[in-house]
Design a protein around this nucleic acid. Structure first.
Lengths: 337, 337
DNA sequence: GTGAAAGCGCTAACAG
DNA sequence: CTGTTAGCGCTTTCAC
């Protein structure tokens, strides 16, 4: 593990020149640049990021805080962010805040403040004013994904819009008895996604002249199992069985398809089902859904972060960047029979 | 962002004393210790990990290399490792090596060598001699999860044993036509898990006096979709339909259950199904399975690492630590009818 | 274009 | 038990 001065010696220059040649900051003649690179290569020299960080104040490392790791959606966002970061030469330090309170405090008050990260990406986490304040006081940029945060550049999907699109798809097919499986208080995440989606669903109905019926709503926990149970309730109702179900997540939608089958109902013959996410299993189940693109979300977050870290050309004006989504029609939706 | 000397000033001591008091290394009188802590608290002092690392050579950060992020199993391992690490005051820097060749080289030859990590945990990755050598040359301990690696402390499950247990479960129920859905070349991961599981399955059959029948084997990719397709082949065979299927992953086992249903076969009436993992969906599908405990695996890896980092009491003797597994019988297996 | 030298903020001998 | 004093390995003015 050679240091910069051994490289300097081998190349016959000063350490300052090595630093310049290798980092690209400052001018170095082409010939010495090559000599330095050759020397570095020969010695397998790799800079000590600590020494470098100490001297420059930059770490080439970003912290990512995320509430789950074992769910497909979050894993995919993380994957997108990781590969984008790596591509920019940045490391990613991971903080999983699933555990709740104490852990979160620790991370924000201790771990993230040790000058180890240049910035933080917060996924599906509504940072508090004090969390944001601390970070900004230290000059650390933040980008949030999944909702808006006061004073922070964010990327978020138009949740009501997503729900409207799903509902309108069903409406346009001719459905009028459209149930909704949304979130319960446990799944009421930081950005109130379930509530916002329910709002979009209701708005679409109202716009179509239909009064949302509370009996056609069921709360669940965004999982397949939860969706299954909720769907059983909805579809088992003998006096008011919906002809279509809009589930706020694909996992719940798949649970709904399974519940329908178990009740002897066909999909989409007896009941149409639409979800949100474009989960990896959705295609298999023929699920119509509103796709969001989690890996892309991770990548976009990194792009925006890089823009703040290396203020370049076009300073992106808006504080919140809308995330793309798209209706994918497969075989779980059709006209009511 | 106050530095150590401001704390020293406020507490009326030298920076050395502050360092000692805060880190716990070296003796400090109780009273000054308290004064220092109070001062640090008041100023919201947090050490600069870079400066500290530069001075000590330790970073309190470990690198984790993992091949996937968006699969339940790997997410769970990562989750276990992350929380254990955090508990020990360590950060986790994540490297997702899903992309393949170039990325992997970059990580091992560049990222991991910048003195940014104290150690590395390799999950389901069979490190090459040179990858291990580089790291060990720098004095970085490594622990591997998922298989054995020459010269590295590892944690691994007895894959043949897992497969035997699953197969014996079926055998003991009275099945003799037991099919196996294993891996294809794409899913032939670094540690040859599919091959080793197939070996265990065949060994159990042989031991029971049954000759493994190649027609009763199907290769798939460890996913639900893949398992579904493979199971259709197996269960659709008119002249040789197995009464039981052992799938090398729960996802494939669930695919098998779904395939059976679609063929009008009942589980376990017409066909018993057993998988491996105890996936989050397994309970929902009533799947009998061999549980492995991914989060625990992550945690155990950290424990072993800490033992190497802070050589304490009992130096764990063995190079490879076996991982626990357990048969969980649910409703997808029964006697053949 | 390149070198000398002063730090970046902390820790670890070494004295006392 | 505590202070003094060198560095840890790099970057970056400031001269030349």
């Amino acid at each position: 593990m050679p240091g910069i001065n051994e490289v300097a010696q081998l190349a016959g220059v000063s350490t300052a020149t090595v630093s310049r040649a290798l980092s690209g900051n400052g001018h170095v003649s082409e010939s010495t640049r090559q000599r330095v690179h050759a020397a570095a290569l020969e010695l397998e020299y790799v800079v000590s990021s600590n020494a470098s960080s100490l001297a420059t104040g930059r770490t080439k490392n970003v912290g990512v805080v995320i509430p789950f790791l074992n769910r497909w959606f979050y894993g995919a966002v993380l994957e997108g962010a990781e590969s984008a970061l790596l591509g920019h030469g940045y490391d990613l330090t991971l903080y999983n805040l699933g555990g709740g309170g104490e852990e979160r405090r620790l991370v924000f008050e201790h771990f993230l403040l040790r000058k180890r990260v240049d910035a933080v990406i917060a996924i599906a986490l509504e940072l508090t004013e004090s969390e944001v304040g601390r970070l900004h006081d230290m000059g650390k940029p933040i980008v949030g994904v999944g909702g808006t945060i006061q004073g922070v550049r964010t990327l978020s999907i138009d949740d009501p819009g997503v729900a409207r699109l799903a509902t309108e798809h069903l409406l346009s097919l001719g459905h009028t008895m459209i149930a909704h499986i949304g979130g319960n208080s446990d799944s009421e995440m930081d950005f109130h996604v379930p509530t916002r989606r329910r709002g979009g669903y209701e708005a679409a109905l109202v716009e179509a002249g239909i009064t949302p019926d509370p009996e056609l709503f069921q709360a669940a926990d965004f999982t397949l199992q939860g969706g299954y149970a909720a769907a059983k309730q909805l579809l088992g109702n003998p006096r008011k069985r919906p002809t279509a179900v809009f589930a706020a997540s694909d996992e719940m939608a798949i649970g709904t398809i399974l519940a329908a089958r178990d009740l002897g109902l066909t999909v989409p013959g007896d009941v149409s089902v639409v979800g949100v996410d474009d989960h990896e299993l959705s295609e298999f189940f023929g699920l119509s859904t509103i796709a969001q693109f989690p890996a892309l979300q991770g990548r976009m977050a990194v792009d925006i972060l890089m823009d703040q870290l290396h203020p370049g050309h076009r300073e992106l004006a808006s504080v919140n960047t809308p995330l793309p989504f798209e209706l994918i029609v497969r075989s779980s939706t059709s006209r009511p029979s």
